[in-house]
């Protein structure tokens, strides 16, 4: 505490301090790091390759003797390694695609809402158009003309996920820009870009961070739908969404196929949730 008085802290540092005090958020952060590490290093603990077929064990339950810790899938491939490889993809897709849609959504929504009038009208009608366009054809065309690549997944997901984010930010902005502090900043001669980045956006972050944490699961599961259309990850690579989707079909007869990826996904999502809430509290400008 005494430190605080001596050296003035930047807002980011302050936010970090506040976050560090939030037990739930810190636990979540540590768990997330552990899961990421597990996905990166875990495969080294198994003798199996993610694409190797074990002709002795087709669809067999978890078994330590054969070193199939999570069992095998219908093709006799080790699910422990596949789950961790899938986790790499899902975590990357989930976090990156969400961050992209987060940034685009915030900027777009804040600009549209703050400038208002005709600009707002045009920008929001553009959002309406994107909402209504047939997403599946967009994906199909992407694969046909550009082949398959992990970057296309981000483009495809990014193209839809930022829309609601933008509308939320715009809604908040419409309300915020009439507030006294924005008026005050204007009177003081702050530029539009400064008002948007320094006054509007920080004040919209609360609901937006929370919505972003809600976007992550959507994105992760969405990726499995892309695989269905032929854009997602290509076999023999996999992802949590794909594994859960396949496992769900036989959960009564082969529980292990869904259980492990589903549990890992659920833990990840819970952690993100608490981390998101912690971040929201830490960044709330009104608490400063």
């Amino acid at each position: 505490m005494t430190n605080d008085e001596q050296i003035p802290l930047t807002p980011t540092q302050k936010a970090w301090r506040r976050l560090a005090k939030n037990k739930a958020a810190m636990t979540a952060l540590i768990l997330l790091k552990l899961i990421t590490l597990f996905c990166l290093l875990g495969p080294f603990l198994s003798p199996w390759e993610y694409d190797a077929v074990d002709f002795e064990h087709f669809a067999s339950p978890p078994d330590w003797q054969s070193k199939h810790y999570f069992g095998t899938d219908d093709n006799g491939r080790d699910l422990y390694v596949r789950t961790l490889y899938g986790g790499r993809i899902s975590l990357m897709v989930g976090l990156l695609a969400t961050s992209v849609s987060f940034i685009i959504g915030i900027l777009y929504g804040a600009i549209s809402g703050y400038i208002g009038g005709k600009t707002d009208m045009l920008m929001m009608r553009f959002v309406d158009v994107l909402y209504a366009l047939p997403f599946m054809f967009f994906v199909i065309l992407l694969t046909v003309y550009f082949g398959r690549s992990i970057w296309l997944i981000f483009i495809a997901i990014g193209a839809v996920e930022w829309l609601t984010m933008a509308r939320i930010v715009r809604g908040q902005t419409l309300s915020l820009k009439q507030r006294a502090f924005v008026e005050a900043a204007k009177v003081c001669g702050a530029s539009t870009s400064r008002i948007i980045t320094r006054h509007i956006i920080p004040n919209t972050l609360g609901p937006v961070i929370v919505y972003a944490t809600l976007t992550v699961p959507q994105v992760i599961l969405f990726e499995s739908f892309l695989s269905f259309l032929g854009l997602g990850v290509q076999e023999p690579m996999t992802s949590w969404g794909v594994l859960i989707n396949e496992g769900a079909k036989q959960m009564e007869s082969a529980y292990w196929m869904m259980l492990f990826p589903a549990v890992l996904l659920a833990i990840t999502l819970f952690c993100l949730n608490f981390l998101g809430d912690g971040l929201r509290d830490a960044l709330d400008p009104k608490d400063r």
């Binding site: 077929v53 219908d74 093709n75 199909i140 269905f228 259309l229 032929g230 290509q234 076999e235």
Partner: peptide, 28 residues
């Protein structure tokens, strides 16, 4: 998908052939 994975695995095991998988949506 399952059949394709098994076939490529067998070709790899017996011949050492590298057969890649390409999945496309039905009409494509």
């Amino acid at each position: 998908k399952k059949v394709a994975i098994a076939l490529t695995a067998m070709w790899k095991q017996v011949l050492g052939a590298k057969v890649k998988l390409r999945n496309e949506e039905w009409k494509v």
